[in-house]
């Protein structure tokens, strides 16, 4: 299958995602410059992490105006799979493709550390290969990952089962201590109404090889490949 990886000025997880998709999982992966206006022909678009435009205004607030974002809106509306990681999640929220916002971490510090994620459901294109009974070990690296949404939006997200990943401890319990940034309901990742756009703060692309400490992130990419292969 064919992945497209968006590149904004200031993006830095583009090469990390490319390495996982192409070198480890042997899928085709292209970099897509933010000026590009056509995303036809791709099965999945990755909006990777980084500091697009330096994030000097508000994380993702400028990137959403890039030409490629119009194309990404059409791609998502047509049901294409989109995964936004870290800054990518922030951009998707700013662009209105996902509800809510990512505020400054509650403790006001940048955090780069390992977290555990509980997969809330396995019947989605992003989680179908994820083990149901095991907390995934995946790192975060961000200063603004504190997920917030209005009470009504939050209730709807929970009701509709659109929270895919929650921060938890090694045993899978979503405790306050296991929440690295103060996110409401320990939210680490959510999907849109259509279930085809995922935003998550943790970096699964950093957890795809045992040599780097964890290969738990693989199952997310595997799920995408698997669901595209069978669609």
């Amino acid at each position: 299958m064919r992945f497209g990886i968006l590149v904004f000025p200031g993006t830095w997880s583009d090469t990390d995602c490319h390495y996982v998709v192409q070198d480890l999982l042997h899928q085709q992966a292209d970099y897509i410059w933010h000026q590009q206006q056509d995303l036809r022909g791709y099965d999945c678009i990755i909006v990777p992490g980084g500091f697009s435009y330096g994030d000097y205004l508000r994380a993702g607030a400028i990137a959403r105006f890039s030409p490629v974002m119009t194309a990404l809106g059409r791609f998502a509306a047509d049901g294409g799979l989109v995964i936004g990681i870290c800054n990518g999640f922030q951009i998707l929220c700013e662009a209105g493709l996902l509800p809510g916002v990512l505020m400054r971490n509650q403790h006001l510090e940048y955090r780069c550390q390992w977290t555990h994620l509980r997969t809330q459901r396995a019947d989605t294109p992003f989680t179908r290969c994820c083990p149901a009974d095991k907390a995934l070990q995946v790192p975060v690296s961000h200063g603004e990952g504190n997920y917030y949404a209005s009470a009504a939006t939050l209730a709807r997200l929970e009701e509709e089962g659109r929270v895919l990943f929650r921060y938890c401890d090694a045993s899978g319990a979503a405790t306050p201590e296991s929440n690295p940034n103060g996110s409401l309901n320990n939210i680490a990742g959510i999907v849109n109404e259509g279930g085809n756009v995922l935003g998550m703060m943790p970096h699964p692309e950093r957890a795809c090889e045992p040599l780097l400490g964890s290969s738990d992130g693989n199952c997310i990419f595997q799920s995408i490949i698997d669901s595209c292969g069978t669609r």
Partner: peptide, 10 residues
């Protein structure tokens, strides 16, 4: 050091 990204570039 948890305030420094020590993993990017994988």
């Amino acid at each position: 050091y948890r305030q420094y990204d020590h993993q990017v570039q994988t």
